[in-house]
Design a protein around this nucleic acid. Structure first.
Lengths: 194, 194
DNA sequence: GGGCACATGTAAGCTGTTACATGATTAA
DNA sequence: TTAATCATGTAACAGCTTACATGTGCCC
């Protein structure tokens, strides 16, 4: 219970890299953390307001009127460290692809093949993106202290994507065989017809 | 929007294998689908009631008074197929481990190593469990039509777990190096001190 | 007869998403 | 001047979890 507000952790973390407006925060979370984290828009502003009330972030003037830069305070940094030290809360899994494949008998081998092909293409796309992120990270000179940690997460993405591709290839083979077995229900092996 | 009620799909799917009580349904979802799906208890009975209203499942008498067996009806099977054919809805990711590592600079290399070690141990545990499930599935003779599909999901779990282990080993190495670099901030390479 | 596993449900409450409302600045 | 982008927020609602309430049958 009391699944603590992980939005706070993500917001404080992003602000620990550099001060931003709420809008930029949303984009940073979407574009940078997007592969393993998400925050909906309606969470970010309330979280910022709450953090401001607690003195963990402060609002500064920004170039644009009507906009504010939010910056993390020393007590915010302390809170971030505290939050990051909490045990990782397991997320109840909900993998729609696996659900479909598990009951794949209802769909048949062909439809399952299509699902797996789609998943394979997704994984290829992700792999390519991870690799271009890795490229960017190794080239640019900003945030040298953060970079090695960022690369860990990129590496996790690459491993996961490669595993997904390898699995998909195996699954496609298995489904092909299954398809043939269904089309030709009696193998020529003797003795099965009694 | 209208994130359709995926609970229905899981419930219909489970009942497509065999009729069950609501209680058994919960256990089946936890124990069999648990690695890639979860339903909370408070969702299952309302879903069953809703499905019964729609004529997709029917309630039969069971051995125990006070308990009912729920069985899928022909229109329920049709609905299941329809549901399974819907595109897979991407789940907004929320990987607490990656969030911590991404902001790992705040925690330091040692604490990150501990996190990765924990993740590695988890993956090992899961891998062992997948392999014992595979064993069971290849031995038993029940549900021969479903089995090949179930094995696909087991295989996905194995691939994912192995990838997690490989990634963890790589990450542990990287973190060790980082730790040494932090402890000894000036490498003996000449010329760095101007 | 006490405890445990089986069994069915409801209610409160939290989290998170989507849509809406509003307004400033900039570029076409 | 109109559209797009930047910017800040709120409100309604869907989804899910947890805890509670209640009862039966079986085994020790």
């Amino acid at each position: 219970m009391a699944r603590q507000n992980q939005t706070e952790t993500a917001v404080l973390g992003a602000l620990s890299v550099r001060p931003m407006t709420g809008y930029a925060l949303r984009e940073a979370i979407r574009d940078v953390l997007g592969y393993f984290w998400s925050e909906s828009f309606g969470q970010i502003y309330p979280a910022l307001a709450e953090l401001e009330r607690g003195g963990y972030v402060e609002r500064r003037d920004s170039a644009r009127p009507g906009a504010s830069m939010f910056a993390i305070t020393p007590s915010g940094t302390a809170r971030l460290k505290e939050r990051l030290s909490q045990p990782v809360q397991p997320v109840p899994p909900r993998n729609g692809l696996m659900l479909r494949l598990f009951f794949g008998r209802q769909l048949g081998p062909e439809a399952c093949r299509a699902l797996v092909l789609e998943a394979r293409a997704d994984a290829e796309r992700r792999l390519a993106q991870y690799q271009s992120i890795r490229q960017e990270l190794t080239e640019e000179q900003e945030d040298p202290e953060d970079r090695p940690y960022w690369l860990l997460t990129v590496s996790a993405g690459e491993h996961t994507a490669r595993a997904a591709i390898a699995w998909a290839d195996e699954a496609l083979d298995a489904l092909s065989e299954l398809d043939q077995a269904t089309a030709e229900p009696r193998p020529r092996k003797e003795g099965t017809t009694t």
